[in-house]
């Protein structure tokens, strides 16, 4: 099947935005739960969520204080924050709108419904009362679309570029969650270590990995095994290892893949060398920074190898 470069690009971004909306919803939800579970005075702060998504400059342009109301508004409904759930869904829909001809028909209907849903409900879902339901709904609807793609699309290039978008975004989100979450919440100088398992539980939850962790590792989430699991388990769909392996599988089937594969292999080697059990917070942070650079470069490689960057 032939696939236009422009269409490939839009499918890729559609997948990234859908993944972003879903991941942000899950992250926000598990963090909200964590917040309710922690004893008063634990002082978790809402800025963590903004930091994970690298949204500080955009946030501070709009708001003065990092309180629950502002942060949730920023993440859920803010029209000026292009990474808010509402705007991610809107961007995903724009990309589907221009690629409907290569997607199963139901994909458009579901993405469009999701768009209408977020448009109608985002504003009123910032408060705790409706928040849970809204975030649940967003995740569920995103998964319907992902499921549709998985069960109805031919494994052709169109599918491949969507898969790349999903995987790259997911890998990115996984590393962010660990980096900022662990760094800010578990870093040095904290007094109350009794809530650590709660926090690790929440981080695992935000990656849909809690129950799998319990079955595979044990009932009590602890720092090193949790990081090991989230980064290196090759069977967990949101682990870094799984994402990188799957990206490799997709890249292998495309022509002109040399640059992208090279960058990918660099990231895979880096991950192989990394040992969470022996790493300090500092080293963990450095590792994540390096991986983020790899992922960024991979995005650039994809852009240059297959999209419409050079009209000649």
């Amino acid at each position: 099947m032939r696939l236009l470069s422009r269409v490939a690009e839009r499918l890729y971004w559609m997948a990234r935005y859908m993944e972003r909306a879903e991941d942000t919803a899950r992250l926000t939800q598990s963090y909200s739960h964590l917040y309710m579970d922690t004893p008063e005075g634990a002082d978790l702060g809402w800025d963590v969520l903004v930091n994970i998504l690298d949204g500080q400059p955009a946030f501070e342009n709009r708001f003065r204080v990092y309180n629950e109301q502002n942060v949730l508004k920023f993440l859920i409904s803010d029209e000026d924050n292009f990474a808010s759930i509402r705007q991610s869904v809107r961007a995903a829909r724009e990309n589907v709108r221009t690629t409907r001809d290569v997607l199963p028909e139901a994909v458009w209907e579901h993405v469009n419904e999701l768009y209408l849903y977020t448009k109608e409900h985002a504003e009123t879902s910032i408060g705790r009362r409706n928040r849970h339901r809204f975030l649940d709904e967003v995740q569920g609807r995103c998964q319907i679309v992902a499921g549709l793609v998985l069960t109805t699309m031919c494994r052709d290039n169109a599918f491949r570029f969507m898969a790349l978008g999903h995987l790259l975004e997911r890998a990115d989100m996984t590393t962010r969650v660990i980096d900022v979450g662990a760094g800010a919440l578990l870093g040095s100088g904290r007094s109350n270590q009794t809530i650590d398992p709660l926090i690790w539980g929440s981080l695992l939850q935000s990656l849909s990995a809690m129950s799998t962790y319990r079955r595979n590792v044990g009932p009590l989430p602890e720092a090193a095994p949790a990081v090991e699991f989230i980064f290196k388990d090759p069977t967990l769909p949101r682990s870094l290892q799984f994402c990188l392996n799957s990206i490799r599988g997709e890249l292998k089937q495309l022509k002109h893949n040399e640059q992208a594969l090279k960058t990918l292999e660099r990231a895979r080697r880096r991950l192989k060398r990394f040992n969470p059990a022996q790493a300090s917070w500092q080293e963990l942070h450095q590792f994540i920074d390096d991986i983020q650079v790899d992922l960024y470069n991979l995005g650039e490689n994809i852009n240059q190898s297959w999209f419409l960057t050079d009209p000649a």
Binding site: R2, L3, L4, S5, R6, V7, D101, W306, L308, P311
Partner: peptide
């Protein structure tokens, strides 16, 4: 294929092509 102008080009052989992956 649904194409926009930028997806197409005419080469020296006077044939029309589209840019695909």
């Amino acid at each position: 294929e649904l194409v926009e102008g930028s997806d197409l080009f005419v080469d020296d052989d006077d044939c029309l092509y589209m840019r695909t992956v």
